[in-house]
């Protein structure tokens, strides 16, 4: 039997709650690895992220500063953690923290010999919701027709470009369907108050939402991709259950997008397949989704591939995946001793 390589990997996104972060599924994938014998260091932001208390999943957890504290503060904390844990790889799993980790990538490698495998800053920026129309043009991908509006006065003239209903979206989050200019105005006010300007007006498409979890090697190759259709959605819009599907067009679109962007790292694509059979890209998440373990179940261990890429290894693309596999999410009440909560809350380590 081949001896597995011992490796220390830090993972964020331990919030396995009802709107879950991808940390715990990523760790499960790494623990399934045939190549690596992993020690997992959890990096948490709050004291109640469930992963902190899952000792068969996470070996040790450290609290890290909020992304808003800036990259210098994060670097300080990572230096401390690394001095104890000798990290080989870090896998960040939150959109909000990626900016800092991308900016720190070179320093982490040079100063602490820690590897990451992340999108470039340019890839990260150009796939932002408000930049998506430009992104579509550049990479020749269909994007629902959208317009950025800054002022409520722009609403009446929307009818020259759109037919109602339209989707009104915030810069970062939130989306509502509006059936009239009056409703657009209501959502414009609500969304701009919360997320600022601009507000995105998007064509409403009738169709089926499909998602892809994928990983690119940064040179244009798709190392792996598994498409899924949500089967059951929670009231927060998260998939509670989904099934892997066989869709050649969707796979072609994914490969084309990764080739054109030279995407580096994990990603999730949110796509609408219209009744006419057209595929429209709705969103790119620059990291693995919380359902990434389905890919492992289908025979593609994307997190393991990501670790190998981070270590500079050559990785051959996956050739196939199982079709018709389901994931069904469940929740589980752990029993936690007070002293564990005390330790993570007061010392920042558990």
């Amino acid at each position: 039997m081949v001896k597995k390589k011992k490796i220390n990997i830090a993972v964020t996104g331990l919030n396995a709650i009802d709107s879950p972060g991808p940390g715990v599924p990523v760790i499960r994938a790494l623990r399934d690895s045939k190549l690596f014998d992993v020690r997992i260091i959890g990096l948490s932001y709050e004291s109640l992220e469930p992963g902190i208390y899952m000792h068969d999943i996470v070996d040790k957890t450290y609290q890290i500063p909020l992304p808003s504290a800036g990259k210098a503060t994060l670097m300080e904390r990572l230096k401390y953690i690394n001095s104890i844990e000798k990290l080989d790889v870090i896998i960040p799993n939150f959109d909000a923290e990626l900016f800092n980790f991308i900016k720190l990538a070179d320093t982490l490698k040079k100063e602490l010999k820690i590897n990451v495998f992340l999108p470039t800053l340019e890839q990260f920026e150009e796939r932002h919701k408000s930049n998506l129309p430009e992104f579509g043009k550049k990479h020749k991908i269909k994007i629902p027709h959208s317009k950025l509006i800054f002022n409520i006065k722009e609403i009446p003239s929307l009818r020259n470009e759109f037919t109602y209903p339209v989707v009104v979206k915030g810069k970062f989050y939130d989306a509502s369907i509006a059936y009239s200019p009056e409703q657009v105005a209501t959502y414009f006010n609500k969304i701009s108050a919360k997320w600022g300007l601009p507000v995105i007006i998007q064509e409403f498409l009738h169709g089926q939402e499909v998602n892809v979890t994928a990983i690119g090697d940064g040179k244009g190759n798709t190392i792996g991709a598994v498409p899924m259709r949500k089967q059951y959605i929670t009231d927060k819009g998260k998939a509670w259950s989904g099934i892997s599907i066989d869709d050649k067009n969707l796979m072609n679109m994914t490969r084309k997008l990764i080739k054109s962007t030279k995407w580096r790292g994990g990603m999730e694509l949110e796509i609408i397949k219209t009744s006419e059979g057209d595929y429209y890209l709705i969103e790119i998440n620059p990291r693995f989704p919380a359902w990434v373990y389905l890919a492992v179940g289908c025979g593609q261990n994307h997190p393991e591939a990501l670790v190998r890429l981070a270590l500079g290894q050559k990785v051959e693309p996956f050739k196939k995946y199982d079709i018709g596999k389901l994931f069904v999410r469940y929740s589980w009440d752990m029993i936690v001793e007070l002293d564990e909560f005390e330790k993570i809350s007061t010392l920042g380590e558990l």
């Binding site: 709050e46 004291s47 890290i64 909020l66 300080e76 904390r77 401390y80």
Partner: peptide
């Protein structure tokens, strides 16, 4: 639910 203070020393 409130965020932590660890590492915020800068």
């Amino acid at each position: 639910g409130l965020m932590n203070k660890f590492g915020t020393r800068t």
